[in-house]
């Protein structure tokens, strides 16, 4: 029997301890029966089918799995799903509204801040956390805020530009 990895609402085998969790994902309450050792990244990807959160290194280094946990960026590959019970999680899928992209999404496209796209969701989530605290960051502040996210394709220069682009647009929208 599956240990609730994919079929999150099927009854568990009797010998596997499970816990029911409720997580507010992108503004929607989601529940699942999970094994205590199930990682948050895996619940998001396989359980909730939100595959925009990627797992790159499994060791909290690469940041491809970055999501916002109660608004703060965390690496979901080293947090257990049960730790998220009752908390708020935002993933890349929650960035855009039905009608429009988030300025970071637009900025990343405009400034050619992505190539293979694998690190991109984590990068954008880390950048979102920065911009929520500081809408007028310097280049150094952006580089520091993104230093937990690795990119192998772009060399970061355009990622920094994209965040600046988004910050400018968000400031303009405020005025």
């Amino acid at each position: 029997m599956s240990s609730l990895y994919e079929e999150i609402n099927t009854p568990p085998a009797s010998d596997i301890p499970v816990r029911r969790v409720t997580i507010n994902v992108n503004g929607e309450a989601r529940t699942a029966n999970v094994e205590p050792r199930l990682l948050l990244a895996h619940l998001l990807r396989q359980g909730f089918k939100l595959t925009g959160t990627h797992t790159g290194c499994d060791t909290t280094n690469c940041g491809a799995c970055t999501v916002l946990f109660d608004g703060r960026p965390i690496k979901s590959c080293t947090m257990f799903a049960v730790q998220a019970d009752g908390h708020d999680v935002q993933t890349v899928e929650g960035l855009a509204s039905a009608s429009e992209l988030h300025p970071l999404q637009e900025g990343f496209k405009q400034e050619h801040a992505l190539q293979c796209g694998f690190c991109t969701p984590g990068m954008m989530m880390a950048a979102k956390a920065l911009l929520e605290e500081n809408l007028n960051p310097t280049e150094d502040e952006i580089r520091w805020a993104l230093s937990g996210n690795l990119c192998r394709c772009t060399g970061y220069q355009n990622i920094v530009k994209a965040v600046l682009w988004a910050a400018e647009k968000m400031r303009a929208e405020l005025n």
Binding site: G52, V92, E93, L95, A96, Q105, F108, K109, L114, F118
Partner: peptide, 9 residues
């Protein structure tokens, strides 16, 4: 990019 920025790769 249209799919990657939405997490839809």
């Amino acid at each position: 990019d249209n799919r990657f920025i939405r997490g839809k790769g």
